[in-house]
């Protein structure tokens, strides 16, 4: 955690325990393997529609995922595969949802942009920029009214900081002192336009925090130790009744905005510099340097690959959804009947 005047990477946070570090590494490796497979399946025409991959941004989702308690709530965006897996949602139904199969997390009714698993308190992936910040507030408000020691974490992209709902949500969370952590994943590009070219302050989230009475928190979103430390600190603050936090995690997406986008508008040297800061190999090197047995890391990598292979097989084996689902669950009686 750094102040705005410092370089994001400057003060190293205290290192998490060896166990936590291995969990962070495993989480990131699983996300990476999943997203690469999702990309391959697009190319084969097996994943239809659109999809927004989290390749390169794994350290943010992993840091928070490991720090969260089972009772905490996650809200995220259409770039939400990583955050969904981070809550322990099994890979197979997520993969099947991307492929539009019966096994899908929502039996194919939501798709890539709306992954939701209420039993895992993964409260939804939202595809209208900014809306879910206001909804996440509602979950946090509910926790507070019920006296439940739950914290809500809400992830969003840099582009969200310029839409009205962001400001409405931040203000209300601060006024109501809600147990919520807002996490801006600043990957420098909205879709095809750099956030810096359309934003009045240098740090789109952290720079706005003081307007809501919040501390500006800027972290290296490619460093899993840093994201875990920031998550643990903000979650503890919220759980203790200290109110909301707004964290800006600087990161980079390795690919384009969505599957149709090769991301060619980004300068080559910028891409190269961020690829050199890939959160996974850099973290691996740090763990090895810290004396972690490399064999243990290889086992994590192999297990992740096997898990993705198995999830892919299960998803491919699943049939298309039952067509009767078109007419189900518009209303709570299970149907779509609007007349009497």
């Amino acid at each position: 955690m750094t102040s705005l005047s410092e370089s994001p990477a400057a003060p190293a946070p205290p290192a998490p325990s060896a166990d936590v570090r291995l969990r962070l590494y495993r989480s990131m490796v699983e996300m990476r393997a999943f997203e690469k497979r999702a990309y391959d399946l697009f190319l084969q025409g097996l994943v239809k529609g659109t999809s927004h991959l989290g390749l390169g941004q794994e350290a943010v989702a992993a840091g928070f995922g490991v720090a969260l308690r089972p009772e905490d709530y996650t809200f995220c965006t259409y770039r939400g595969h990583n955050h969904t897996l981070a809550r322990g949602v099994p890979m197979a139904p997520v993969m099947a949802e991307l492929m539009g199969r019966q096994l899908g997390l929502m039996a194919g009714k939501g798709g890539s942009m709306h992954l939701t698993s209420i039993p895992h308190r993964m409260m939804g992936s939202y595809a209208i920029v900014g809306a879910h910040l206001t909804i996440a507030n509602g979950a946090a408000w509910s926790s507070k009214l019920r006296g439940a020691p739950e914290v809500t974490v809400c992830f969003f992209g840099d582009g969200t900081t310029n839409i009205g709902a962001f400001h409405e949500a931040l203000n209300l969370a601060a006024v109501w002192q809600l147990p919520i952590v807002f996490v801006c994943e600043n990957n420098r590009w909205m879709e095809y336009t750099p956030i810096s070219s359309v934003t009045a302050v240098a740090h789109p989230a952290a720079g706005r925090a003081p307007a809501y009475g919040l501390d500006p928190i800027l972290i290296d979103g490619n460093d899993a130790d840093a994201t875990f430390a920031a998550a643990a600190s903000a979650l503890e603050r919220a759980r203790a009744g200290g109110g909301p936090s707004l964290i800006e995690a600087e990161t980079y997406r390795h690919g384009g905005h969505s599957r149709a986008d090769p991301g060619k508008y980004r300068p080559d040297d910028e891409v190269a510099a961020w690829l050199a800061r890939d959160p996974i190999p850099t973290y691996r090197a740090r763990l090895v340097a810290a004396g972690v047995d490399e064999g243990a890391l290889v086992r994590v990598e192999e297990a992740a690959q096997e898990a993705v292979d198995e999830a892919t097989e299960q998803a491919m084996a699943s049939p298309p959804p039952d067509l009767a689902l078109v007419h189900r669950d518009v209303f709570s009686d299970g149907g779509a009947t609007w007349r009497r």
Partner: peptide, 27 residues
Amino acid sequence: GRVVDTPISEQAILGAAMGAAMTGLRP
């Protein structure tokens, strides 16, 4: 606690109602 004045923020009002309804309240 149960009857709450809000800012002039209609998105925040309805978002809060939705999130609360998802998590055990009837707003």
